[in-house]
């Protein structure tokens, strides 16, 4: 079951397809995270900042716009885009997970931060989403790697590695945490 507050008239299941793309495509996730963080921005600003090919940037922005995850905020050229924060809650078999902008930002980092990439390989995106919740606590000083390791069934070393890797994301999104 998927629930999302109505956003710009785009129904949840249609949004879900683009959200799935975001989770699978780190470069797309980077574009979304960048627009959310720095928007409104133009496509050429995205190209310059993220160092991705122009054609790719246009395609990605269009995909995000079609899914209503970003919207044009300036109707004349150069167009400017701003992003809507995602909150897509999925429930299966009594387990619930919310896909948040912070999770997308964490996925976006997997290309540049191999620690995050390895963690996703080993524990999946659900594992990453849970680790991200611990990263907020870690930043806040209300957990340490030793307790996190026991609660997540990791070694203390692996827990410390992922908490440090997610620390920048948790710090940036701390105010937005649900």
């Amino acid at each position: 079951m998927a629930q999302s507050p109505p956003r710009s008239g785009r129904p949840p299941i249609q949004q879900l397809q683009t959200v799935a793309d975001l989770l699978e495509t780190p470069a797309l996730a980077r574009v979304y995270a960048h627009i959310l963080h720095d928007g409104p921005v133009t496509v050429s600003e995205i190209v310059d900042t993220l160092d991705i090919p122009q054609g790719t940037a246009y395609d990605y922005v269009q995909n995000l716009e079609t899914a209503s995850l970003v919207e044009k905020t300036r109707e004349q050229r150069p167009y400017e885009y701003d992003a809507e924060p995602i909150a897509l809650t999925l429930s299966t078999d009594g387990k619930t997970q919310t896909i948040t902008p912070a999770l997308i930002a964490a996925v976006a980092r997997r290309e540049e931060d191999e620690d995050i990439d390895v963690y996703i390989e080993r524990h999946g995106l659900d594992g990453l989403a849970i680790a991200l919740e611990y990263a907020y606590e870690y930043v806040d000083g209300t957990v340490n790697h030793r307790i996190a390791a026991r609660e997540l069934d990791l070694s203390p070393l692996e827990a410390e590695i992922i908490l440090q890797a997610l620390e920048p994301v948790a710090t940036e999104y701390v105010g937005a945490a649900a």
Partner: peptide, 11 residues
């Protein structure tokens, strides 16, 4: 203590 951590650059 954790050979699995070798998979991580920071490990």
């Amino acid at each position: 203590g954790d050979p699995a951590a070798d998979a991580y650059p920071s490990g």
